[in-house]
Computed example of a mutant assay.
Amino acid sequence: MLAAMIAPDLDLAADPAELTADLIDLESVSGGEGPIADAVEAALRRLPHLTVHRDGDAVVARTELGRDERVVLAGHLDTVPLPTVPGARGTVPSSWEEADGHRVLYGRGATDMKGGVAVQLALAAALTEPNRDVSYVFYDHEEVDAAASGLGRLQRNAPELLEADFAVLLEPTDGTVEGGCNGTMRFRITTTGRAAHSGRSWIGENAIHKQADVLARLSAYTPRTITVEGLDYREGLNATGIGGGVAGNVVPDTAHVEINYRFAPDKTPEEAVAHVREVFAGYELEFTDLSAAARPGLDRPAAAAFVAAVGQEPKPKYGWTDVARFSAMGVPAVNFGPGDALLAHTDDEHVSAEAVRECYRALAAWLTD
C-alpha cells in the first residue's frame, strides 16, 4: 500500500496520447520498472469495476462480468536503455513536435511500447461494461533474456490470470494486425587454438582464423520465406557478435561468434535447433536463448472477429513477441498497436498522437460493439 501512496499519479481519463507522454516520463529501463508498476497499480486500484493483482513488477487488472468470452490486452512496461548519442530525441523526458500537420511524441518507449500501454490503461478506465470480460496485463522484463520475463513469471505463478479465449499484444504494428511471430534463438560457436608469440606464429594455432569457416557458412546461407496459414514469414541467420584475442603480440587460443536465428512458425524449437546443427555440422553449439515461434491462429473465431473489426489485411510478425507465450498456453494471439516497429529502440523513437488515438478507437469499438 505504501508503494501505491507514493506512486506518481496517472490520469487514465486523459487523452491516450497525453497519457503516453506521462508514461515515457516514468523512466523504466529493464530492471527499473518499479516506479511505473507502482503508478499503474495505483491508478487501476482506483477503478471499482476491476480486480487488481500484483506479482513483482507485473500488474493484472480484470473485469469479472461473467461474459461468455474473455480476452487479454497485454503490454510490457520496460524499455531498452536510453540513447547515448548527443541530441537524440528518443529519450526521457518526452517531447512533442509538429510534423506535416501531425502532433508527434518523441521519447524512449514511445513506440515500444508505452503508446500501447497507454491505450490499455485508457480502455481499462473507460470500459466499465465491455462486451467481453477483459484482462489487462502489464509486465516487466520483456526487453531482456526470456528467462527473466515478467509474463513468464506470471505464467508460472498465476497462470489462471492469463487464461482467455484470445489475446492482443499491443506491440507497435502501425495499426495493422500482425499474426503469430517468428521464433528466435541465440547460440555461440567457440574455436580453440594454441597461444604463441606473434613473432613466432608458426608455433601457435590461431583460433580467430578458425572462425573463417563459420563466417563463410553464414555468408553463403540463404534464408527462406515460409508461408504459414496464408502469411509469409521471412527467416534470418546472422552473426551478431564476435570476440577473441589476448594482446597485439599474441596468437589467440580462443575465439567465438554469437549467432541469432529467426525461424518461421512452421518449426518447433527442436526442429530449429536441428536445422542450425545441420548448418554448422562439425561445431559445438552453445545455446544461450531459445523462444518458440507462434502460428497465426487467425482461423480461430475470436481472432477472425478481431481482424474483421480492425478492417485491414493481417501481416506476419517477423520479430519475436510474447504472442508466442500465449500461443503455448493455447490462447490465440495477435500483435496490434500504435507506432512503427522500425522506430523501436532508435535514437529518435516517436509515435504520432493520432496513431495512439486510432488504436484506442479500434479496440474500444471491438469491445463495445
Score class of each variant (00 low, 15 high):
M1S: 15
L2G: 08
A4H: 09
P8Q: 09
D9G: 07
L10V: 04
P16W: 13
P16A: 10
L19V: 09
D22Q: 14
I24C: 04
D25G: 11
E27Y: 04
S28A: 15
S28P: 14
G31F: 04
E33P: 03
P35I: 11
P35G: 08
I36K: 07
A37S: 13
D38T: 03
E41W: 03
E41L: 03
A42E: 11
A43D: 06
L44D: 05
L44Y: 07
R45N: 11
P48D: 12
H49K: 05
L50T: 00
T51S: 12
T51P: 08
D78H: 05
T84N: 07
P86T: 08
A88T: 08
A88H: 07
T91P: 07
P93T: 02
P93M: 12
W96M: 00
W96C: 04
E98V: 13
A99Y: 01
A99C: 11
D100Q: 09
R103K: 15
Y106V: 12
R108Q: 04
G109Q: 02
M113L: 05
K114M: 00
A118E: 02
A118F: 00
A122T: 02
L123R: 13
A125F: 04
A126Y: 05
A126Q: 14
E129F: 05
P130Q: 07
H141E: 14
D145W: 15
A146S: 11
A146D: 01
A147P: 06
A147D: 05
G150V: 09
G150H: 14
P159D: 10
E160G: 11
E160L: 02
L162V: 00
L162A: 06
A164R: 01
D165Y: 01
D165F: 00
A167H: 06
L170R: 02
L170F: 12
D174F: 02
T176P: 12
G180H: 04
C181Q: 03
M185I: 06
T191Y: 07
G193S: 03
R194G: 01
A195S: 12
A196Y: 04
H197A: 08
S198H: 01
R200W: 01
G204P: 06
K210G: 08
D213P: 07
V214I: 14
V214P: 03
A220P: 02
T222Y: 00
R224G: 01
T225Q: 15
T225R: 15
E229Q: 11
E235P: 14
N238G: 00
T240H: 04
N249P: 09
V250F: 00
P252N: 10
P252A: 05
F263A: 11
P265Q: 10
D266S: 11
P269C: 07
V273H: 12
A274Q: 05
A274E: 09
H275C: 03
E278P: 10
F280S: 06
A281E: 14
A281V: 05
F287I: 10
T288W: 02
A293N: 09
A293P: 12
G297M: 07
D299M: 10
R300C: 08
R300T: 15
P301Y: 10
A309Y: 12
Q312M: 13
K315M: 15
T321V: 09
R325G: 02
S327Q: 07
A328C: 07
M329Y: 03
V331Q: 04
P332A: 06
V334G: 01
A341E: 11
L342M: 09
A344I: 01
T346A: 11
D348R: 09
V351A: 09
R357L: 12
R357T: 02
Y360D: 03
T368F: 10
